[in-house]
Amino acid sequence: MGKRMKSKGILPGFGLTIGYTLVYLSLLVLIPLSILFLQTASMTWEQFWLTVTDQRVLASFQVSFLTAFFAACMNAVFGVLVAWVLVRYHFPGKRFIDGIVDLPFALPTAVAGIALASIYSENGWIGQLFAAWGMKIAYTPVGIFVALTFIGLPFVVRTVQPVLQDWDRQVEEAAATLGASRLQTFLRVILPHLLPAILTGFALAFARALGEYGSVVFISGNMPFQTEIVPLLIMTKLEQFDYTGATAIASVMLVASFFMLLVINFFQWKTNKLDAGR
């Protein structure tokens, strides 16, 4: 970092921390990931294009992106709600609920997939309730959505929770004194403050859901053109020892989610600035 930081802050440690961050990031993430593109580069453009625009691949992109998006939306809304309830209210079993929020990470994804498939299939505990209404969950895109919601659940809750915990309630009091209703206070004062954290959680849940494999294969049914997710197609390629085809699809996916994350981070930065300028 030849350049000094632009803000004339007096805090030390920028060189140390940014240096360490960059080195660690490069060694552990960037260099290994660049292998993906290196491997893909052994294809000609035409081969690459044919591989990634295959109808089946496109269909799976659609399935993956849509289900991941809806699952992340679901998590954004309910994640904030859960975080709010956990920080603000007291109710029996609160500690327990707080404790199990992280479990989707701890359970191996395969176990999660098996458990979800058994619950949401037509003879499962919840599946049969829906089956009575003629709705199928397991082995449909809804099943994928359920699995992805499960694995992404901790992200929003856990990013919003600490921010909410540190939140100074005097601001709310001030808003209330000035005559704002609770809903107004929440929408105008609290929510904007939470927005960066929510966006972070959303982005992470979305990105994670895009790549998820272990839990989805058990509940999705894996039907071509309907419930086939991108990671499954990558596995299919590997099964034919087609490493290059697999990395081609993987790098498209990586680039797509990279840009999506970039956009979300940009918005987050924007709202942060707005918030700070207030």
Partner: peptide, 18 residues
């Protein structure tokens, strides 16, 4: 920031493969 997020966006299968 986005580069730091990247490992989340990589399918676990691919994280092993790299």
């Amino acid at each position: 920031l986005t580069l730091i997020d990247l490992p989340f966006a990589v399918s676990p299968v691919i994280s092993g493969l790299i």
